[in-house]
């Protein structure tokens, strides 16, 4: 990877962080409603994995902590912020919200609130790819908490049985909402849980984007070439609460602080500074430019564009012509 790409990746992670910090502000200002689940601390997972995928062509699906997966898949940040603001110009026309982002134009297939619900959807995308023929793969990002749902086991079995080209990325942030993994799960190493289904798997650090990319490249290539599922577990941590209403009472300050030392942006920035790819001054300029872009382009756009028309409230329940036939 050359210096231009390294700087671009650093900027993408920084953009993700600043974007979501701005989301939190907008939430407190009540410009964003409902539930808001943020991703700070986990950026290297989505950005590192999808850096090695064919975004726009490969299908991507995830749970409700979906902003950064959508962005890295190619969604316009303005359409994303407009969705959070509930606007007609949002990626889901203001009908979805934070947990239900969609952009089928770039094969970003959503944003789902039911934990474990996307497992079979991802296998279904792979099933359609298999029927059509083609080199795309399906990529499913979910947290460790989802692996205690029946859909995890049912889908692993079928994906392996039918050789479906789907890559399962487990973002193991050690907590299922507010319950620590060792209090909910017997086998805390998630990658070991797919062995009975005959699925190749690995576990790696999810905080260092170089390590993520190394493993992701291998995983993506395996699925694309072998036309079989693969399971990659990324060890990570969310630096904020589960959602905006999280008390944080279930984990210690020391633990959070320890993981903050392993912030993926900090790790990557230090590496690039040491290698002479960026200077501290360049980093600060980059940060300023990112924040200006978010404020002047993204937030301004989301604030100014119109809300959906109330008379369209029942639109999209069915497709137009859903009763047509023949």
């Amino acid at each position: 990877m050359d210096a231009t790409d390294q700087k671009r990746l650093l900027r993408e992670m920084l953009f993700a962080r600043r974007f979501e910090e701005r989301c939190a502000e907008a939430y407190h200002e009540r410009q964003i409603g409902g539930f808001l689940h943020l991703y700070p601390g986990e950026e290297a997972c989505a950005i590192g994995v999808l850096e090695k995928a064919q975004t726009g062509s490969d299908y991507v699906v995830t749970g409700y902590r979906d902003h950064i997966h959508a962005l890295k898949s190619g969604m316009d940040p303005k359409a994303l912020m407009a969705e959070l603001f509930g606007k007609e110009a949002g990626c889901s026309k203001g009908r979805g919200g934070s947990m239900h982002l969609f952009d089928p134009d770039v094969h970003f297939m959503g944003g789902y609130a039911l934990v474990g619900g996307p497992f079979p959807l991802a296998a279904g995308f792979a099933k359609a790819i298999q029927l059509r023929g083609g080199q795309e793969i399906s990529i499913c990002f979910l947290g460790d908490g989802a692996n205690n749902q029946g859909t995890f086991h049912e889908t692993m079995n079928m994906a392996s049985l039918w050789n479906l080209p789907v890559l399962f990325i487990c973002e193991n942030n050690l907590y299922g909402i507010g319950t620590a993994i060792e209090r909910s799960t017997v086998e805390i190493n998630q990658y070991k849980r797919v062995a009975p289904y005959g699925i190749e798997a690995a576990q790696c650090d999810g905080q260092d984007i170089d390590i993520v990319m190394t493993h992701a490249e291998k995983a993506v290539n395996y699925v694309r070439e072998q036309r079989k599922p693969y399971f990659l577990e990324l060890m990570t941590y969310r630096l904020r609460g589960h959602s905006m209403s999280d008390s944080g009472a279930y984990r210690s300050k020391e633990e959070v602080e320890e993981w903050a030392q392993r912030d993926p942006i900090g790790i990557y920035k230090r590496r690039l500074v040491e290698a002479g790819v960026v200077t501290e001054d360049e980093f600060h300029a980059m940060d300023k430019a990112v924040q200006d872009e978010i404020e002047n382009e993204v937030v301004r756009y989301a604030s100014e564009c119109p809300e959906p028309r109330v008379e369209d409230v029942a639109r999209y329940v069915y497709t137009e012509g859903g009763n047509n036939h023949g």
Binding site: P120, A122, G124, F125, L131, R132, L161
Partner: peptide
């Protein structure tokens, strides 16, 4: 013509996913 395991929720979901991308 796919014989499924006895996993109603997930094979339904696989059908739904396939439908979402054109099958």
């Amino acid at each position: 013509v796919v014989d499924t395991p006895i996993s109603e929720n997930s094979y339904t979901g696989i059908g739904v996913g396939a439908a979402m991308v054109g099958a």
